[in-house]
């Protein structure tokens, strides 16, 4: 088949037009666009207010600056499929939250979106085009940072591609603030160590889920994981899944820490995200 044959095949569609009148509203697009732009500003204002209230009630003495903190049980942003990447995992934390993205196709490169709480990170670099009307900077060759709230920055880093900056811009366009409770496929008695983060598969994906207590982490897996140097992996109480406790160092792998693995109980159906729980403590 020649190129002309190919063009001829689709030729009857060349004069095809939408049959009905348009229902598209430019005014609505402007309203929605303004709302979307305002979402970042509103989220920043809420964060500042929450931080102010929280610090006023409990931590005014401990934190001399107005630095913000995130709730580790809540995902504060979402990221879409963009720039050739799609979200893979999401990790909460008090100082920052991180979404890891993987290539939509193939295995080349990767990307991360890190949203920092106020006062936790200030980038330096050349000025970049605004993101949702917020000032932005290039950080190195493959990272874009934008100020999503007062003194609160987010970075998008792309690796493995020479057009990393353009891809980072597209990913930035897909980032939106949100407040999504983190759900887990297991429960356990509340340990004495503070919960400092949670790592789960992004969106509706199913995979390993981890609770992080400083240097110690507890990971629930539906498939047998590989073994690490400073960790212990056991079958869960149902015998169908795996629980890994990683202590960070061999010295820290004490009986108290390893006992954590025995206390983990899966939810009824860890294979479906709809059955995961926002209440992991028993």
């Amino acid at each position: 088949m020649s190129m002309d044959d190919d063009r001829e095949l689709l030729a009857p569609l060349r004069d095809l037009e939408p049959p009905g009148a348009s229902t598209v509203s430019v005014a609505q697009a402007i309203r929605d666009g303004r709302r979307r732009k305002a979402a970042f500003a509103a989220a920043a204002a809420v964060m500042v207010a929450l931080v102010a209230v929280g610090l006023g009630l409990s931590q005014r003495q401990q934190l001399p600056t107005a630095a913000g903190r995130f709730d580790v049980a809540t995902e504060v942003f979402t990221v879409g499929t963009a720039g050739g990447f799609t979200p893979s995992t999401f990790e909460t934390g008090t100082d920052r939250q991180i979404a890891t993205l993987v290539p939509e196709k193939g295995t080349t490169g990767g990307a991360t979106v890190t949203v920092y709480a106020a006062g936790r990170f200030t980038p330096s670099g050349d000025q970049a085009p605004d993101v949702y009307g917020h000032r932005a900077r290039w950080v190195g060759d493959y990272s874009l940072a934008f100020e999503w709230g007062p003194d609160a920055w987010a970075t998008i880093t792309v690796s493995g591609y020479s057009d990393g900056r353009a891809r980072a811009q597209h990913i930035a366009d897909s980032v939106a603030t949100d407040t999504v409770p983190v759900k887990l496929p297991f429960t356990l008695p509340k340990p004495s160590w503070p919960l400092t983060g949670v790592r789960v598969p992004a969106g509706d994906r199913v995979g390993d889920a981890t609770m992080i207590f400083g240097a110690i982490s507890v990971t629930f897996s539906t498939t047998e994981p590989s073994h690490g140097d400073h960790s212990v992996t056991v079958r869960d109480q149902t015998g169908r899944y795996w629980v890994t406790v990683d202590a960070g160092t061999a010295d820290a792998l004490t009986p108290t820490v390893t006992h954590l693995a025995d206390t983990v109980l899966p939810v009824a159906d860890p294979g479906h995200r709809s059955g995961w729980t926002i209440l992991p403590w028993r």
Partner: peptide
Amino acid sequence: DEHRADDVVQVAITRLYTSWRR
């Protein structure tokens, strides 16, 4: 499909608004 097409255009011009400067 014209209805889906209008939905796509509505979303697209909203995105265009948010990145109009670029």
